[in-house]
Design a binder for these strands. Structure first.
Lengths: 165, 165
DNA sequence: CTTGGAAAGTCAACAACACTGACGTAAAAT
DNA sequence: ATTTTACGTCAGTGTTGTTGACTTTCCAAG
């Protein structure tokens, strides 16, 4: 049941109970993390999938459907349904690739950018409030643990993004 | 676009870009966080909803349906569908309350405890590896930020749980 | 140059899991 | 005795995931 504790000072906190608390903290925190966007999305008849698509199109304008698939970790059919509604609703524009005509490059329209802004404002506010409540050292630790928890493939992608900090 | 930075040293890192990275880190990390249980659950034809129910019944044996509803944040119809399958599959036992016969107290059977163990072993391993990779200070910060990010109601519940650390 | 395969994307059908709303039963509370 | 609470269920709906089958486009081997 209990962690062996044979290693040294750095292992003292790694009991099963401590780890379970960390798991629950992650579960509850993620609920908070998505609570504000979820409320906003309800007003638009969109869901989290739309939010994710809009977020990453904003982050990487001109990205292809295939790129998004790798980042979002869903099937292309699932993403396609979401993109179709966003495109037909005029939030996302899909341009046929000039070099490779199989590809579709995705961009937010003005309207799409407005929704992205509304969603990310709310989410950033929560993140900012949390950061302010705990201070910079805690934030640094928070980010370290999150990175360590990612699947290796996504961690590599994420670290590549980090370069422009 | 940019954070005002008028406050002082503790605000220097709170640019919109930094906050967006934090948001993405949370998104990617949560994927990693659920990846191992998801793989296991596929073998049992169960989903995350079953995992959550099993986890919190393990955490609080004898908890009532109503208690679980508050913790999981779903409707009773949704939870009931999950509990029904878990009970009929023999993973969860539902006992009528002795003091208040309206209540149903939920317990894991031996089989249910086995699944809980398999799921939480995988999830704890990931959490433990991440903790070990970053060290205790980072973990303390991680936990602080997660708590700050929770909705107030869940934060109160979570802090009450924390007492037995 | 043609042909065959791989890649990017789309359409259709289905499953999981969330939601609302309505209803029923039993037990507790008033 | 009436109301409220706890729980279960049925019916219907929506989002989001899945697999399977398909078109278009690209590219490379023959």
């Amino acid at each position: 049941m209990q962690e062996a504790r044979s290693g040294g000072e750095a292992l003292l906190f790694l009991t099963d109970e401590q780890l379970r608390k960390g798991i629950e903290a992650m579960f509850f925190a993620y609920r908070g993390f998505t609570a504000d966007p979820d409320r906003i999305l309800n007003n638009y008849a969109y869901g989290r999938a739309h939010h994710r698509a809009v977020h990453f199109i904003h982050r990487s304008p001109g990205t292809t459907v295939n790129n998004l698939l790798g980042i979002l970790g869903v099937t292309k059919q699932s993403l396609n349904r979401v993109l179709r509604t966003l495109i037909s609703d005029g939030l996302v524009e899909s341009r046929v690739g000039t070099k490779d005509k199989r590809e579709r490059h995705l961009y937010l329209t003005q309207e799409g950018a407005t929704l992205e802004r509304e969603l990310s404002d709310a989410q950033r506010k929560r993140m900012r409030d949390a950061y302010r409540a705990v201070g910079p050292d805690a934030v640094a630790g928070f980010r370290k643990v999150l990175e360590a928890m990612m699947e290796p493939e996504l961690r590599r992608y994420f670290k590549a993004l980090k370069d422009d900090e």
